[in-house]
């Protein structure tokens, strides 16, 4: 098992997984406590439109995808900044439209046959060193922003009405939060694929929420959980020769189910204990 660490592609995969875990822990916590999972899904899928534009125009993929997704996320932010009610419909429209645009543009691009599957599932085993450094930069930027605006994000997430009454820049923070989500999600998609991003943004954060006493604690716990799922999934993928992204998600899902059952049993046991 230990010889898996000797391969450079495996080392890179582990670095990518750990770095993605930090970003997903931070973004996932904000997404989950703000009930924005659907919105994050919309942003992530709309990113494919940016990929399509890049291929069609012959532009570099990563900057185009980041720019396009940032634009889509600002549209979603403007639709959701005043009230989250009914915003799900607009998110759904952008979700579908972004993906369709990407597919159509790639259809129209002569000579190119980009694999949609690699966008969906990524290829953590072929991550180059340069992407690792991009992710280091992304993690650092996210950490700085969250440290700077931690108390504002906390108040915004907990109780927007109150934050507004104190004169906090609620609208600007809402845009910033969605912009951070968009940039982080696209950059991690390019490394590990869309499905894995959705899994790492939701599953660990949801598990961490129940056991944390602060948003910061939730971010740390969900980063650690994400990292664990990545390592466990990669080990499984290596040992049994499975697809890496799907193995990581499988590890996360199985842990999630065991955790849910554990909580249920714990509650039942407490309930029985209370009865005379």
């Amino acid at each position: 098992m230990i010889e898996m660490l000797s391969h450079e592609f495996m080392q890179n995969a582990i670095y990518a997984g750990l770095l993605a875990a930090v970003a997903c822990g931070i973004i996932g916590s904000l997404v989950v406590v703000n009930r924005m999972v659907f919105l994050a899904g919309g942003v992530a899928h709309a990113a494919y439109g940016g990929v399509g534009i890049a291929y069609f125009m012959g532009w570099p993929v990563m900057p185009s995808a980041v720019g396009f997704t940032l634009g889509a996320s600002m549209l979603m932010a403007s639709a959701t900044s005043r009230s989250m009610a009914r915003s799900d419909t607009i998110v759904g429209v952008l979700w579908a439209a972004g993906m369709a645009l990407g597919i159509l543009l790639i259809d129209l691009t002569p000579g190119y046959n980009v694999d949609l599957m690699s966008f969906l599932f990524g290829s953590i085993l072929t991550v180059p060193r340069s992407d690792i450094w991009i992710m280091v930069g992304l993690d650092a930027a996210l950490l700085v922003l969250v440290l700077l605006f931690y108390r504002d994000f906390l108040a915004l997430s907990f109780d927007r009405e109150f934050a507004r009454s104190r004169g906090a820049p609620v609208e600007a923070l809402h845009y910033l939060m969605l912009g951070m989500t968009a940039v982080a999600v696209v950059m991690i998609i390019s490394v590990v694929g869309l499905i894995l991003v959705i899994a790492l943004v939701t599953i660990p954060a949801y598990m961490a929420e129940v056991h944390s006493r602060s948003l910061a604690g939730m971010m740390v716990v969900s980063s650690v959980l994400s990292a664990f799922f990545c390592l466990a999934g990669l080990a499984l993928a290596y040992r049994f020769d499975l697809t890496s992204g799907a193995s990581i998600i499988a590890a996360a899902t199985v842990c999630f189910l065991i955790w849910r059952v554990g909580i249920r049993l714990h509650r039942l046991a407490k309930g029985f204990g209370r009865k005379p």
């Binding site: 406590v33 006493r213 602060s214």
Partner: peptide, 23 residues
């Protein structure tokens, strides 16, 4: 504000809620 506007299972301590008043 009306308490229903805040999510009830939010991971936050009582002290941190009060500290939001300094926003």
């Amino acid at each position: 504000p009306q308490h229903s506007e805040g999510p009830s299972d939010f991971p936050v301590s009582v002290l941190d809620v009060v500290l939001m008043g300094f926003l």
